[in-house]
Design a protein around this nucleic acid. Structure first.
Length: 579
RNA sequence: GGGCUGGUAGCUCAGUUAGGGAGAGCGUCUGGCUUUUAACCAGACGGUCGGGGGUUCAACUCCCUCCCAGCCCGCCA
């Protein structure tokens, strides 16, 4: 691109090629959200035109110029808000941000699909702070009695929120807030109860034959008796699926509360025969999703690969054929794996936003979700340092550029949306593993000194800058502890129990004398070798003795330089096994 | 069984939309920092771009086929 040598000289022959490629290179983007935003802009423009593109005929606009662009996400409140759910928030967020940057008004809405029935007991739940707890820590029996009922009709197992659904929705809203994403939460149940869905339910049931026909293309279930509406039994409170009559004028259905097959289990119906209004039940998901598009005027919705083959194609068809609305722009995101395995709350292979925020900054999480959504990727907590390093490099690419053009271009486009606010200068980022080394000591002053001596903190850094830089130390420390990895060492405040032979104790005493003389870190490092040799022991053994004394371990960080930074008297005393 | 998506260096990933030089970081190795002990610096090694076939002057990129992983094709979301 801006390669100046060679290319210019050869231009006589390449002039045509150059012009051609320049013409074709316009819709390239360095950040996927920009390409998606292009699609949405085209959709919006089309909807504002008064001339139908295909027929050339005049038509009423389907979109008011003042209408904001609506981006949606949504999940079923099934027990734990885990990092996989965050896809639904963050993928849309980046598209929203790009559109806002281009001057559009954008609403990011989020549905809690909370009229869905509880189908089986979750093995894990998350408490109000996002901590994962087992089913045994709550009243599982109470939950079991509520199988088949909408989440909004089930009490919060923690006894705090209004319902199971409310508890979960609060978790997700809190996660969004932690990540700095402003979403408008919608309760599906409320959309039914306040009548928002009435027109859609009426339309679907008024043309139930068409609805059935469309769905049958995608699902075997849509047989001759199938009615795409599930009333809530007024007697037992469970969702049921046997509708016997539809009264469009009264906006009610008659039903029999029959058994519902859920996987290999059966949720028993109570046999009650009753009548429910359109507000006392729900559309099956494949209809409910398009219903949400209509009611919330959705322009764009990212969804996981599980929807790509099943409910998306049928949803498009239903939107088109039954509801006569234009489906939103889609985007399929690949699922990521956690520690090499698929996310699974039942197997316990999940991580929540609060858990992750103990280990790294929110901008690193946002960075993770700014990466190419179509690529399957792994989040490896053992190697979290890699992710953080990648983020640091990405940040550096934004401020200074790096020798990887595609990364620099990606950073220029994406970085402003990944951080809360773009600072004037690149923030100080301690390398994550170095921060883990600093985490071996508790004294904040010493941490700062170590970071400064290593050249990570400039002399003129003010207090706030230093504090911000050192914040990562706590995170890396927590990481080292949770992973119990090679950085999980801790400077021992008290003298550990030791058993050294005479040669080693003599060597330690000699080394103590060197330190007492005022040796700096490098000198101490060299002195360890010299002293070992003088006392006829292996340097490795002396190092090990040092690690035993200071960390109560056999290994640790670079010992000489580390000791050089500690308080001299303390080091001397410890080497002499006195404290 | 059919379909969708993914598979690029030991690891994490760019690059594939638009065919032309296979890349980065980390790790590893070597060297430096007055002599192995995880922080710093430099360099090197490292890939049949999942396998095979085809189109093309030219293929990681397009086409076909096979392998692996996840998902969908029952229900539910």
């Amino acid at each position: 691109m801006s390669d100046e040598d060679g290319v210019g000289d050869a231009d006589g022959a390449d002039g045509i090629d150059a012009a051609t490629s320049a013409d074709a290179s316009d819709d390239h983007h360095d950040f996927w959200a920009e390409a998606v935003a292009d699609e949405i802009e085209q959709r919006v423009v089309k909807q504002r035109e008064t001339t139908d593109e295909a027929s050339g005929e005049e038509r009423p606009v389907s979109r008011d110029p003042d209408d904001p662009i609506v981006i949606k996400g949504g999940v079923s409140p099934s027990g734990v808000a885990h990092l996989g759910n965050v896809n639904e928030i963050m993928r849309g967020y980046f598209v929203a941000e790009v559109l806002r940057e281009r001057g559009h008004e954008v609403r990011q809405v989020f549905t809690s699909d909370d009229r869905d029935p509880l189908r089986k007991l979750p093995r894990k739940l998350a408490d109000a702070d996002g901590n994962i707890v087992g089913l045994g820590e709550v009243d599982a029996g109470a939950l079991g009695r509520n199988l088949g009922k909408p989440y909004t009709d089930i009490p919060d197992p923690f006894g705090e929120a209004d319902s199971y659904a409310a508890h979960f929705a609060a978790l997700l809203a809190a996660d969004a807030e932690r990540l700095g994403v402003d979403i408008e939460m919608y309760s599906n149940t409320e959309l039914y109860e306040d009548g928002s869905f009435d027109p859609v339910v009426e339309r679907v049931l008024a043309d139930v034959d068409t609805a059935r026909e469309v769905l049958s293309e995608y699902q075997a279930k849509a047989d001759a008796d199938y009615v795409p509406f599930n009333p809530i039994c007024e007697d037992c409170g469970k969702l049921t699926e046997t509708v016997t009559d539809i009264d469009l004028d009264a906006e009610t259905v008659d039903y029999v509360c029959t058994d519902m097959e859920v996987g290999d289990e059966t949720i028993e119906g109570c046999g009650h025969e009753g009548t429910a209004t359109f507000r006392e039940g729900k559309l099956p998901w494949r209809f409910e999703w398009p219903a949400q598009w209509q009611v919330l005027d959705v322009d764009f919705e990212p969804f996981g690969k599980d929807h790509a083959e099943g409910s998306w194609p049928s949803g498009v068809d239903i939107a088109d054929t039954v509801l006569d609305i234009e489906p939103p722009e889609p985007m399929v995101y690949e699922w990521f794996t956690l520690n090499g395995e698929t996310l699974s709350s039942s197997a316990g292979n999940i991580v929540t936003v609060p858990e992750l925020l103990d280990l790294l900054e929110p901008e690193v999480i946002r960075y993770f979700f700014a990466l190419n959504p179509t690529r399957a990727r792994d989040l490896d907590l053992e190697r979290l340092d890699q992710l953080v390093d990648d983020f640091d490099r990405f940040e550096r690419a934004y401020y200074e550029g790096v020798d990887d053009d595609s990364l620099t271009a990606f950073a220029e486009a994406a970085y402003p949306h990944v951080v809360d606010e773009v600072a004037d200068e690149r923030p100080i980022r301690l390398p994550y593993t170095f921060a883990a080394v600093l985490g071996m000591v508790d004294d904040p002053t010493l941490r700062e000194k170590l970071a400064h001596d290593e050249g990570h903190i400039p002399d003129d850094a003010d207090e706030a800058t230093v504090a911000a830089a050192l914040a990562r130390v706590e995170q890396a420390r927590t990481w080292a502890e949770r992973m119990d990895n090679a950085y999980n060492y801790r400077l021992q405040a008290d003298l550990p129990e030791t058993a050294f032979d005479d040669a080693t104790t003599d060597a330690l005493d000699s080394l103590a004398a060197v330190v007492a003389d005022g040796a700096d870190g490098e000198t101490i490092q060299a002195a360890i070798y010299d002293t070992a040799r003088d006392h006829d022991i292996e340097p490795g053994d002396l190092f090990e003795a040092g690690y035993r004394l200071f960390f109560d371990e056999t290994q640790g960080p670079r010992l000489g330089e580390f000791l050089g930074d500690l308080e001299r008297e303390f080091v001397v005393d410890r080497l002499r096994r006195e404290r």
